[in-house]
Design a protein around this nucleic acid. Structure first.
Lengths: 208, 208
DNA sequence: GCATGTGAAGTGGTTCACAGCA
DNA sequence: TGCTGTGAACCACTTCACATGC
């Protein structure tokens, strides 16, 4: 049961959006081919994912019951239990992240936003008061925050990482272009926006 | 020579940063183990990457000549030729992206920023005047822009994608939570910030 | 008959382990 | 001796192709 591949899990939110969209148009049954093409994957991929998930909403010769699928996806994503997270860095990126509706979905709870700049501390973003980094460690342990999103400049990223780890955070989503050094018990996911663009540039050059 | 795996290419920027940092501390020789641990990969991984790249700066029993490595990485990344790109959407995320120093590296050239909001058109961001989306298609074809970064709300993402494709863009970096439908000649890379967090939330639940 | 569900084959990338060389 | 360079084994995921069952 624990054997669902990570890559399958990463596709579930996209599947969920496709289903929501179809349901809101009054559709409540669809084939793997229809669902897959809207989600940008192959139909085999989609069926394999269903198989791996142990989903049982498919009907041979007919398609999938969307309402049932939706339920299965949601519980696979574990949306029951709320997971608290904080955003460190209230600059443009931090604000963009806080505003992102995506973060309101899926059992996530934005518990706090932190920054070091006097001008930003005390401001309200997404209905939450920005606190000073000084209070970060205590806030994390007091509120049992398990995830920290680092949206600071690279120069302070490692320091922030150390702080949140001391506070007890177990996962870090890192947007700075720095490879963070953390204990192996802490999971880090990094998104380096520069790297993403460079990969495209590479394609642009090769393709042209 | 074309056989360098994508995943190897994605690690080069991180390697480059590690090397730059070491060089600036006066180091000019290092072993695969030292370099790899700072870059957050295994030493075997690092050596394999060097092997696949055809790099020849390693000295058996000693380590790697950092200056020579740096040259090889840079040319592997093709930093000679400038690739032009535009950012569509001048909200928080668009501004964060425009400000990102990462985009100034690696032979990338931010040619324009676009938005639909009256209040934003005409503003200066990162030294560039924000233009209206109306001019997007023409701008792309006139300036031979090959990459478009979509930082708009999901509701307009597909429309923007259609526009940039008509203009002649060949690659799209998509930050909206929408699966874009584009001709197969166009390469799309998507970053859904919500999905990234959800994956961490998943770990948080399972780990705890 | 038609679309699902799934073993089997294929693909791409990582790790292992050791031969080769300064 | 120590560390690189690399074939070979391994692993995770994807695609194929077909048996299965509504």
């Amino acid at each position: 049961m624990k054997k669902v591949p990570l890559s399958t899990m990463e596709r579930l939110p996209a599947y969920l959006r496709v289903i929501d969209s179809l349901v809101s148009h009054g559709v409540d049954f669809a084939s793997s081919a229809q669902l897959a093409s809207r989600a940008g994957v192959s139909s085999a991929q989609f069926r394999k994912d269903m198989s791996l998930l142990g989903a049982s909403s498919g009907v041979r010769g007919a398609g999938y019951d969307l309402a049932a699928l939706r339920v299965e996806f949601r519980q696979a994503l574990g949306s029951a239990e709320l997971v608290r997270f904080v955003i460190v860095g209230a600059g443009n990126l931090g604000q963009a992240l806080a505003a992102s509706s995506a973060f309101r979905r899926g059992g996530l709870d934005l518990a706090g936003i932190f920054d070091v700049a006097e001008g930003r501390v005390g401001q309200e973003i997404a209905g939450i008061s920005v606190l000073h980094d000084d209070q970060l460690e205590e806030f994390i342990s007091a509120n049992e925050v398990s995830i920290a999103v680092i949206a600071t400049p690279g120069s302070s990223a490692q320091q922030v990482a150390d702080t949140v780890v001391r506070g007890g955070a177990k996962e870090i989503l890192n947007f700075s272009p720095v490879v963070l050094q953390v204990p192996s018990t802490v999971e880090v996911r990094s998104i380096d926006l520069g790297v993403e663009l460079q990969m495209l540039a590479l394609h642009a050059r090769n393709g042209a």
